[in-house]
Write a protein that binds this DNA or RNA. Structure first.
Lengths: 148, 148
DNA sequence: TTCTTATTGCGACCGAGTCGCAACACGCGC
DNA sequence: GCGCGTGTTGCGACTCGGTCGCAATAAGAA
């Protein structure tokens, strides 16, 4: 008999467990939302989705959990060029960094992985003696469909 | 007899004039603050400094003027990794883009100009058929003095 | 099962940014 | 110089993202 979707411990949940971080109902709900997201979500969207799993999840718990995941380096925080208001968007951090391109006309977000980006970061670490923890490259402009 | 500092029309003021944009007292004050800034300022710092020139400048006028300058492509808006709260920082846009590095320990902001960054943007425009209007690369980590 | 301690929900709060409106002032045409 | 139309301003109220203190609760180690 298969467990309900939200009960399958996802990777995020395991990564927190490995670090000896206490697991709770609301936390499980929020993690599952982030883990199964198919697009970039902001805090209020995460809250809304988490509530479909656990009715009682509170706004501040969402923010506290996002803070925890950020501190643990498990998610990245994005601005996406503030296409809609001033809030932030979140995504799981996996593998190598990617560039976010936001179309200022249609709002589409596309991602791009580039070796040049990696060299740029290496160059920065070398030339500036700077130890990079997070790197965020966001670009605003017109996507292929919208440019003319 | 030299004019008082704030009366010398700066480049920003001229660029707005060229575009037929009306010049006013508060606007002059705000422009001069941005023009003579030696570090990245946020909206409330700009307001405070502008008020030392023109007592009556209002908060919303600062935001409206920043919006104007953004739309005209004369300033860039930065997050600087949200080192202090959620606000934004502003700087004049001149010449080529540069990378902002924010030290998460001491808060120092350093800037770095890189040809690799330029190639990366070119690559993006070419490979993704994306027309770049603004590009923002921000890095958080430890500066040479703070890393260990 | 108990006990400690981290986490939660709640409500009040804060600061950044926006908006509608009436008063004002820039600068063009005379 | 002088008036006039329109863009700009100050003001105050508001929205929204995010934070905090606190008492109640629940994890999970012993």
């Amino acid at each position: 008999m298969p467990l309900p979707q939200t009960q399958i411990p996802g990777r995020l949940q395991m990564q927190l467990a490995e670090r000896g971080i206490r697991m709770t109902g609301p936390r499980r709900a929020i993690l599952s939302v982030i883990e199964t997201a198919t697009k970039h979500l902001d805090a209020s969207q995460i809250l809304r989705k988490a509530r479909t799993v656990d009715e009682s999840v509170d706004r501040s718990t969402v923010y506290r959990t996002l803070g925890l995941l950020k501190r643990q380096g498990l998610i990245d925080e994005l601005d996406l060029m503030h296409l809609n208001g001033e809030g932030h968007y979140y995504e799981r951090k996996l593998g190598r960094d990617h560039i976010h391109m936001a179309c200022l006309r249609c709002g589409k977000i596309s991602e791009f992985v580039s070796r040049t980006f990696e060299s740029l970061k290496n160059q920065l670490e070398r030339d500036c003696h700077f130890h990079i923890l997070v790197a965020r490259l966001e670009v605003g402009g017109y996507c292929s469909a919208c440019r003319r």
